[in-house]
Amino acid sequence: MCTRFTRAWFFIVIALFLLGSLALLHAPSRIYMDQWTGDLFGEGGVEKDVRVHPDRPDAGVQGGVIMSKLGNATAKAELGRATWKLLHTMTLRYPENPTQDERDALWNYFHLMSRLYPCGECAAEFQLLLQKYPPQTSSRRAAATWLCVVHNEVNARLGKPEFDCAHLDETYDCGCGDEPISSSPTTAQDNPMDLERDPSRDEITGAGLINGRR
């Protein structure tokens, strides 16, 4: 006759055998993490339970103009001068031998600006220029010269004189230190690239208007 210990041991062996059989019949469940959202998903593997991922962070680079028309002429002119200074200084400080990531960043920047620029009609024109003259990102010289050509395209449309692209670093002090720049800083008054008319001042006398700066 089996003792109590023997019967208990026998039942334990049977239970382990049954559990092992179930494990063989049903593979362990697998959980996967969505790399974009961090959500856990999936029984049966990625192939069967894959979902449409949200848009990549650079998905909004291409698209139409977002901002509406800017009707304030003074604000438009000041915005234009500040933007050209920013863009020219940025390209003058751009690496001479950029990595692919740095090239992608500059390319995306110009296209994002063409969508988000606060002056809607200006942004639409810039988008047309980007289609005609795609951004050049292979080097500092290429980027700075490309931007100067685009700026001169705008000047030509406005009936303004063309700027010599060979003297960009003399006009826009990039702060690079070891690169030649003009010995005396260029003021807004004699800046040859500051070609937008300032509507806050009288064109003949130069006197500040009511809403202008004196």
Rank of each mutant, 00 (worst) to 15 (best):
Gln127His: 07
Arg115Gln: 08
Tyr117Gln: 01
Cys122Gly: 00
Gly120Lys: 05
Leu130His: 00
Gln136Ser: 15
Leu112Pro: 00
Gln136Asp: 10
Gln131His: 12
Thr137Tyr: 06
Leu130Arg: 04
Glu125Arg: 06
Glu121Ile: 04
Leu112Cys: 10
Ser138Glu: 15
Thr137Asn: 06
Ala124His: 04
Ser138Cys: 05
Ala143Cys: 09
Glu125Lys: 12
Ala142Arg: 13
Ser138Ile: 14
Leu129Met: 09
Met113Leu: 14
Ser114His: 06
Thr137His: 00
Arg141Lys: 15
Arg141Ala: 13
Arg115Pro: 02
Phe126Lys: 00
Arg140Thr: 13
Arg141Asp: 11
Cys119Ile: 05
Gly120Asp: 04
Arg115Tyr: 06
Cys119Leu: 10
Leu128Trp: 10
Lys132Met: 14
Leu130Phe: 02
Ala143Trp: 00
Lys132Ser: 11
Pro118His: 01
Ala124Lys: 09
Cys122Ala: 12
Leu112Arg: 15
Pro118Leu: 02
Leu129Lys: 09
Leu130Tyr: 02
Met113Tyr: 08
Ala123Glu: 08
Leu129Asp: 00
Thr137Arg: 05
Leu112Lys: 08
Leu112Ile: 06
Ala144Val: 02
Arg115Asn: 08
Ala142Thr: 12
Glu125Ile: 13
Leu116Glu: 14
Gly120Ser: 13
Ala143Ser: 15
Ala143Lys: 08
Cys122Phe: 01
Met113Glu: 04
Ala143His: 04
Arg141Thr: 11
Pro135Ser: 13
Glu125Thr: 09
Pro135Gly: 07
Tyr133Gln: 05
Leu116Tyr: 11
Pro134Asn: 05
Ala142Ser: 10
Arg140Asn: 15
Cys119Lys: 03
Ser138Ala: 14
Cys119Pro: 00
Ser138Val: 14
Ser114Leu: 03
Ser139Ile: 04
Ser139Pro: 02
Ser138Asp: 08
Tyr133Phe: 15
Ala143Glu: 04
Ser138Arg: 15
Cys119Met: 07
Ala123Ile: 06
Met113Cys: 09
Tyr133Gly: 02
Tyr117Cys: 05
Ser114Tyr: 04
Ser114Gly: 06
Ser114Val: 04
Glu125Ala: 14
Gln136His: 13
Cys119Phe: 01
Ser138Thr: 15
Gln131Asn: 15
Arg141Leu: 09
Arg140Asp: 06
Gly120Gln: 07
Pro118Ile: 03
Ala123His: 01
Phe126Val: 07
Glu121Val: 07
Ser138Gln: 15
Ser138Leu: 08
Pro118Val: 01
Ala144Met: 07
Tyr133Pro: 00
Pro135Val: 08
Gly120Ile: 03
Leu130Ser: 07
Ser138His: 14
Tyr133Met: 13
Cys122Val: 04
Pro135Trp: 06
Glu121Ala: 07
Ala143Val: 11
Ala143Asp: 08
Ala142Gly: 10
Ser139Ala: 01
Phe126Tyr: 13
Phe126Leu: 06
Glu125Asn: 12
Met113Val: 13
Leu128Pro: 00
Leu129Val: 05
Leu116His: 11
Leu128Phe: 12
Ala144Trp: 06
Ala123Leu: 07
Lys132Cys: 02
Ala144Asp: 00
Gln136Gly: 09
Leu130Glu: 07
Ser139Trp: 11
Arg115Leu: 07
Pro134Cys: 03
Glu121Pro: 01
Gly120Thr: 13
Gln127Arg: 01
Ser138Trp: 12
Ala142Gln: 14
Glu121Ser: 14
Gln136Pro: 01
Pro135Cys: 11
Leu130Ile: 04
Cys122Gln: 00
Cys122Leu: 06
Ser114Gln: 02
Leu130Val: 09
Glu121Trp: 01
Leu116Thr: 14
